[in-house]
Nucleic acid binder design. Structure first.
Length: 895
DNA sequence: TCTCTGCCAAGAGGA
């Protein structure tokens, strides 16, 4: 298919082969041949071959060409006594004439703070030439021996980076395996100067921020360097379209003829209308703003600039560790090594590892005192006094590893934004699929629907459809009749998951293929866990550690690990009707081969618009499921938010013609539903049945507890399980002021204490701990309440405390909502309490009882709370007064 | 002065 991909795959295979040869010392051509076959049988490689569309035999023939050269190279440079061959090689002009006496490292990873570059060096070798010994980088190339400036420059860069770790070699080796030629590339001051200047110029453009206009509203995209004038190169460039569109979108004028761009730009953007360019420009700007915002406090920056102890205290690092000598590094699979680190006795204050901060599954970078980023990896497990990390290299290969002190730092990649930018660029391509999506998403062509479904379809799916309620049935049929797309708006508790499961089953019975996605892993798995009860087969893509344990038998990584041929991959991948992954997980090889009949995006109102684009490129029709009146996508930059970045694709496409509303809910009782109906849904939400309407909390010990007199009057009133008391607002009347707890988050200790007192009362009245959930907008308050609950509410039960954002999609019998803010507040439009969707999510999590705690007077500055105040009836508000009805304010948080 | 989830990496060649 793509010849570039094939060459690149051969390139990396040859690299692997070469590195194996070097590791295992010299090998005979026969052994090399066996090694090639071994490398090619790796599932990862077979999978890639499937993606490119070429056979094992073909790649094997290509690989065989390299064997004689690798063999000869190792004979000449690694063997100590090979006089005959040295003469032969001296025939070649410029051929390097030294000897490699030791391989010091393979794939050495360097992040150089000095030069601001990073990279992986193929081989770090100790050489001897005319009695002079050096340690220098060796760069391997498998393509045409061009000795080009790019190749030589790469060697020079590696040589510079090496000087961060050891004495500056001022040179490096460049080896072409196509003909075995190897030269020494000088890396003196003059070579370095040009590269550093180039590096700085690139960084200048990469970090440029959007230009701000008056009123601090960003208007223009950051500039790019002037386009080169080289038609032949540009014609073949993979970035020509993006480059041209960017030039058109940028404020700078397009070069005039005879500059190559003068004809190229109009030519390659001919298929695009102004609205398309505007959309690109707008989202490009938003993404840039968000990137700039994220750069402010990146963990990588701290890695350069901050002391490890400081990094540890902010929760991003485990500092001063030793590689445990007792535990050997074990290889998990090719290129993966489990390391066990324990706290070094040299740590100034603590002999224990911190208990908060890094978590299993976090991506990390391991450094020593003097070497930044020796290796990248993932946290694998925590043990009593140690942490296990899977790394991409074996640190015990360093002879002095026992003496080294290590730091393990959190390392976030910026890949998300790459995917978002790529999606945006893909949308502008001159392909039928991109044109189709542009018409729907940018031009907003309304979706059309078939007049009906065939009898056969209805008959086959009858038993599935019958199990749904009337509105659900209508929505499902409409989705199936959609010719391009449709939307499913599911208000809280309306059974979105059930309906998606029904949809997938119906599609499968019709033989339609489905790409099932959502933004988070847990949302994807949520559906799959239900789906698997109906005997529907599916494939789950994504990183194994992120996939629900019960679903791992369906995980790509598990199922395909035993595959031995390209054909087993293609048979397997082509046979799966249902494939599930996250919106950002669309870089799997399967998507280079397959197009699905349907794409379903769940929680679509929480997905960033350009992220939702990703899966849509791979399906003929799509359906978005969500509720724009619940939380929008997370956007950090306030500027980007103000310019509309949190508008999800769902919200953009939501229209009467396209959207089916699910309005019958199965969660909340009447009084709780009434709150959200008046707050958000204009009374459209209904209880699915009359039983639900009047359902109340079961508190078996409540009456006897009241009779015994153990419960103070105020708690009796708050906890009372009657329908009338299903919704209660505890007004702290200004007596519970917020405090700031040192961090930049907000807490309210007195509110926390009240919440805990109520939980205690509920549990004494007979509620189980998993029946109650505590919600609050602020992280710090979550922690405060969580710690108190652990301390005060014993019996080993766990009450779940979390942020509003984390509770979306979930429910509990009783919900306690701690509003936190109280005091002389200044109104701020971007504050999280000002978002009515957040309040809506908070009040719609409870089935039978909703207890809110807050200071009504202070909260009055926020629009959603003002509205809430008009909704609540007098009996639903309880004013806490000191000394009244057995209530006494506590000075401290401990009751 | 707030909410926070995704993405495996840097390089595999070609002009």
């Amino acid at each position: 298919m793509d010849s570039g991909n094939q060459l690149m795959l051969i390139g990396s295979l040859v690299h692997q082969l070469f590195q194996e040869v070097v590791k295992k010392k010299t090998q005979t051509p026969n052994e090399l041949d066996r090694l090639v076959q071994e490398l090619m049988s790796q599932p990862k490689i077979l999978q890639e071959l499937y993606g490119i569309g070429i056979s094992e035999a073909h790649i094997y023939e290509e690989m065989k060409n390299f064997i004689p050269y690798i063999h000869a190279w190792s004979q000449v440079y690694l063997e100590s006594s090979c006089s005959v061959k040295i003469q032969e090689k001296e025939k070649r002009k410029n051929q390097w004439n030294g000897k490699i006496v030791e391989i010091q490292d393979i794939e050495e990873n360097i992040w150089s703070p000095k030069f601001g570059v990073k990279g992986k060096i193929d081989l770090t070798v100790k050489t001897n030439e005319h009695g002079v010994s050096k340690v220098m980088p060796l760069e391997l190339k498998t393509g045409r021996p061009s000795f080009s400036a790019e190749h030589r420059g790469q060697v020079t860069l590696y040589s510079m980076m090496s000087s961060d770790r050891r004495q500056d070699p001022k040179a490096g080796l460049l080896l072409y395996l196509k003909d075995g030629s190897m030269v020494e590339v000088p890396a003196g001051d003059s070579e370095k100067r040009g590269l550093i200047q180039l590096r700085n110029e690139i960084i200048h453009y990469l970090t440029a921020k959007p230009v701000l206009e008056e009123g601090l509203m960003p208007s223009a995209l950051p500039p790019l360097p002037e386009p080169i004038d080289f038609e032949r190169a540009c014609m073949k460039c993979a970035h020509l379209l993006t480059c041209s569109v960017y030039q058109k979108s940028n404020e700078e004028p397009i070069p005039e003829a005879p500059h190559a761009m003068a004809t190229l730009v109009p030519k390659v953007t001919d298929h695009l209308q102004k609205a398309h360019l505007d959309y690109f420009r707008h989202w490009c700007l938003l993404l840039h703003l968000e990137v700039a915002d994220g750069r402010r406090d990146s963990a990588v920056r701290a890695l350069w600039c901050q002391d490890p102890i400081k990094r540890e205290s902010s929760g991003d690092c485990l500092s001063w560790l030793v590689l445990e000598s007792a535990v050997t590094v074990s290889e998990v699979e090719a290129g993966q090594f489990v390391h066990s680190f324990a706290r070094s006795p040299t740590h100034p204050s603590s002999t224990k590892l911190p208990t908060v901060g890094l978590q299993i599954g976090d991506n990390v970078v391991v450094s020593s005192e003097t070497e930044i980023a020796l290796s990248l990896g993932v946290i694998f497990a925590f043990e009593e006094a140690s942490v296990k990390v899977v790394l991409d290299r074996d640190l015990k290969l360093y002879s002095n590893w026992r003496k080294k002190q290590f730091h393990v730092d959190r390392c976030e990649y910026q890949n998300t934004m790459c995917i978002n930018f790529t999606n945006l660029a893909k949308l502008l391509m001159d392909t039928p699929q991109a044109a189709h999506l542009r018409a729907l998403l940018i031009d907003r062509n309304l979706p059309s629907f078939k007049q009906g479904l065939s009898k056969e379809v209805v008959f086959k799916g009858k038993h599935i459809i019958k199990a749904l309620n009337k509105t659900q049935q209508r929505a499902v049929l409409k989705t199936l009749m959609a010719e391009s797309y449709s939307l499913l708006k599911g208000y809280p508790g309306t059974g979105k998951t059930s309906i998606i499961v029904a949809l997938v089953r119906l599609m499968v019975t019709q033989g339609l293929s489905v790409l099932l996605t959502s933004y988070t892993h847990s949302a994807v798995d949520n559906i799959l866990l239900k789906l698997r009860m109906y005997d529907v087969d599916f494939l789950r893509l994504g990183r194994l550690s992120r996939i629900h344990p019960d679903l791992r038998s369906h995980a790509d990584e598990i199922v395909t690990q035993k595959f031995k041929s390209v054909s087993s991959f293609s048979e397997f991948y082509e046979s799966k009707l249902v494939v599930a992954t996250t919106c950002l997980g669309i870089n799997h090889v399967i998507f280079s081969k397959r197009k699905f009949d349907f794409c379903i995006i769940d929680e679509a109102s929480q997905v960033l618009q350009v992220a939702a684009l990703g899966p849509l490129f791979h399906a003929s029709r799509f359906v978005l499921v969500g509720d724009p009146q619940q939380l929008p996508p997370v956007v950090q930059s306030n500027q980007a938010k103000n310019l509309g970045m949190s508008e999800s694709l769902f919200k953009r496409l939501d229209s009467q013609g396209a959207t089916s509303n699910l309005t019958q809910q199965y969660r909340m009782n009447g009084p709780i539903m009434k709150i959200t109906n008046l707050l958000m849904y204009d009374n459209q939400l209904q209880c699915a049945n009359s039983h639900l309407e009047t359902a109340t909390l079961n508190l078996p010990n409540y009456d006897s507890l009241v009779e015994s007199g153990k419960l103070s009057i105020w708690l009796q009133k708050i906890v009372e399980p009657s329908l009338r008391c299903s919704v209660m607002f505890l007004d702290t009347c200004g007596a519970a002021a917020e405090n700031h707890n040192g961090s930049n988050s907000v807490v309210n200790s007195k509110e926390a204490a009240i919440v805990v007192a109520i939980i205690q009362a509920l549990i004494e009245a007979g509620l189980t701990a998993d029946g109650v959930g505590v919600i609050t907008p602020y992280r710090a308050q979550v922690k405060q309440i969580h710690d108190l609950v652990v301390k005060e509410v014993t019996m080993g039960q766990r009450v779940e405390v979390n942020t509003v954002d984390q509770y979306q999609g979930r429910d509990k019998d009783v919900i306690l909502y701690s509003c936190v803010r109280s005091g002389a507040l200044k109104f701020n439009a971007s504050e999280i309490l000002e978002d009515d969707r957040r309040l809506n999510v908070a009040v719609t999590r409870a089935k039978y009882k909703l207890i809110m705690v807050g200071d009504t007077a202070s909260l009055h500055i926020y629009t959603p709370f003002r509205k809430l105040a008009t909704i609540l009836e007098p009996h639903q508000i309880y004013q806490l007064k000191n000394g009244q009805e057995g209530f006494v304010w506590q000075d401290t948080v401990s009751l």
